[in-house]
């Protein structure tokens, strides 16, 4: 599978956020987006997920523009937005059942993505009583109900403890090893195959040589 993102332009009022942003990705690749606050990372992911409307954009998957085919996009793309896209008053199980059929949910808990994320440990817990990490794992579990080939994650590991981060990264590794493409606003730099920095409305590659200060100067 080959992804091409081309010419993404977005502005809010007169404020240009993204100006001709383009990048490519292939199967099994994890692409990390880094950038300062308000640089447009979430906006870019939202556009690719079909949530935010851009002035212009192309999101080609093997030559087909997913932005022009919502049904195809919904079946191929999994999107985990920033925040907690869950119902606080319902349990993990009830939240999962909004997306999964009962049988599929049990299969995934047993030996699938939900098991990898460790959701079975807190299945009956109300979302309102969960830790941030548990919520994030559950949110990812909900977002991938349709076995997407492309995963867009917005701050997947923000404010998570080590165990939760480990579980999420473990899942992402599994995902990319099986040919998926993950693009995320990066918290775990080492995990990414490639890093792209969003600066001055443009996207450009950046090399990570192990030094955080180098990355900061790139921002």
């Amino acid at each position: 599978m080959e992804l091409k993102v081309r010419n993404v332009n977005k502005k809010y009022g007169r404020n240009v956020i993204l100006d001709g942003v383009s990048f490519d990705a292939v199967s099994g690749e994890c692409v990390g987006l880094i950038g300062g606050n308000g640089s447009g990372k979430s906006t870019l992911l939202g556009i690719l997920a079909g949530v935010t409307r851009a002035e212009s954009a192309e999101f080609l998957c093997d030559g087909e523009d997913l932005l022009k085919n919502p049904k195809k996009r919904a079946s191929v793309v999994g999107y985990v937005p920033q925040g907690v896209p869950l119902f606080d008053e319902l349990s993990a199980r009830d939240n999962l059942l909004l997306w999964y059929g009962r049988k599929k949910m049990e299969e995934e808990l047993e030996d699938g993505v939900l098991g990898l994320l460790g959701i079975g440990e807190f299945l009956r817990v109300k979302v309102g009583s969960m830790s941030g990490g548990m919520k994030k794992r559950l949110a990812i579990g909900c977002a991938v109900y349709n076995d997407p080939k492309i995963l867009l994650l917005d701050e997947p590991s923000a404010a998570l403890d080590l165990i939760c981060k480990e579980k999420i990264l473990s899942y992402l590794k599994n995902f990319t090893d099986n040919g998926g493409v993950a693009t995320h606003d990066v918290g775990e730099i080492e995990f990414c195959d490639r890093l792209l920095v969003l600066k001055d409305r443009q996207l450009s590659p950046v090399e990570y040589g192990g030094s955080v200060s180098e990355l900061v100067s790139a921002l």
């Binding site: 939202g46 997920a49 079909g50 949530v51 919502p70 049904k71 919904a74 793309v77 999107y79 985990v80 937005p81 920033q82 925040g83 907690v84 896209p85 869950l86 119902f87 949110a139 909900c142 977002a143 349709n146």
Partner: peptide, 13 residues
């Protein structure tokens, strides 16, 4: 307090 579920729903049709 959190509208992210609206985005998730929207992205899923």
């Amino acid at each position: 307090k959190d509208r992210s579920i609206e985005k998730l729903l929207y992205s899923n049709g």
